[in-house]
């Protein structure tokens, strides 16, 4: 590659600037959350976090978000493994139509489902319970999950499946004993993506669980906390935002390589 050193330097500089801009807002809330200021007095420390934790009920919110997200991921992965397996390896009656409808489901705005969901949950007396968020979010995660697992199962050499069938394994056993043991990475990346989406979902939480502080999700609690003026001190609001972002950022630091490769490759498929 014969490219001048100057060009290489300019491109790297651009990348550094782009990266700094990408992380700066996060860095800035971390800095202002650590800035003691009016809340605690001594200039630097964790006072803001203590205040935010106490006033905003973020302990409950984080637990509730975790419980909801984990349930959604577990159930979704289970049902989409079954569905993806069938669509990848069997002659499903109406399979093409099912895939087309699921494809539309990938770009649907949640706005078109939330009003009827509100009425449904209210009729079922589930409003302001975790189930009001868990059940719809499983449904909304199904399209992505089915496409994801279907493309994984379709990538497994068909000879492997046939060998197992000839050995006398039933179709279900082929999936359980042959495919699932090698599906770890695909399931892992899918779970990470679904967890992220579920954890960050805001509109559904705002509409379906607004009244019950015990099941408010972390983003919803933050939205109420930042909007209600309960924290007139920007440092406390920033601390609350950091509390909500922290679990996700930590998980991201651990899983980023797999998440990004998985997303960029999976998205194009």
């Amino acid at each position: 590659m014969r490219v001048s050193r100057a060009e290489s330097a300019v491109t790297h500089a651009l990348l550094v600037i782009a990266s700094i801009i990408a992380v700066y807002p996060l860095v800035s809330i971390v800095m202002s959350s650590l800035d003691g200021g009016a809340a605690g007095g001594d200039g630097f420390g964790l006072n803001n976090f203590a205040v935010a934790w106490e006033r905003g009920g973020f302990g409950n919110a984080l637990l509730s978000s975790a419980a909801i997200s984990i349930t959604v991921v577990l159930v979704t992965v289970a049902v989409v493994c079954l569905a993806g397996y069938a669509l990848a390896t069997m002659q499903v009656p109406g399979g093409r139509v099912i895939l087309l409808v699921l494809l539309l489901g990938l770009v649907l705005p949640y706005e078109v489902t939330v009003l009827p969901l509100y009425q449904m949950m209210s009729q079922w007396n589930l409003l302001d319970t975790s189930w009001a968020l868990i059940l719809p979010q499983i449904g909304l995660s199904v399209p992505l999950g089915v496409f994801w697992m279907r493309s994984f199962f379709a990538s497994v050499p068909v000879e492997l499946l046939e060998a197992a069938r000839i050995d006398g394994a039933s179709r279900f056993e082929v999936m359980r004993l042959v495919l699932l043991p090698i599906a770890g990475p695909a399931v892992g990346t899918l779970s990470t993506i679904l967890f992220l989406f579920t954890w960050n979902e805001f509109l559904l939480a705002l509409i379906l669980v607004p009244q019950n502080e015990l099941v408010q999700t972390a983003p919803l609690a933050l939205s109420f906390f930042a909007g209600a003026g309960r924290a007139s001190d920007p440092g406390v609001t920033a601390a609350a935002a950091v509390l909500v972002a922290l679990p996700i950022v930590l998980a991201y630091v651990l899983l980023q390589r797999r998440l990004i490769t998985g997303l960029t490759e999976g998205a194009v498929k």
């Binding site: 809330i29 805001f202 933050l222 609350a240 909500v244």
Partner: peptide, 8 residues
């Protein structure tokens, strides 16, 4: 989370 984005 978009709420964190909005706050910052």
């Amino acid at each position: 989370s978009s709420v964190v984005v909005a706050v910052s």
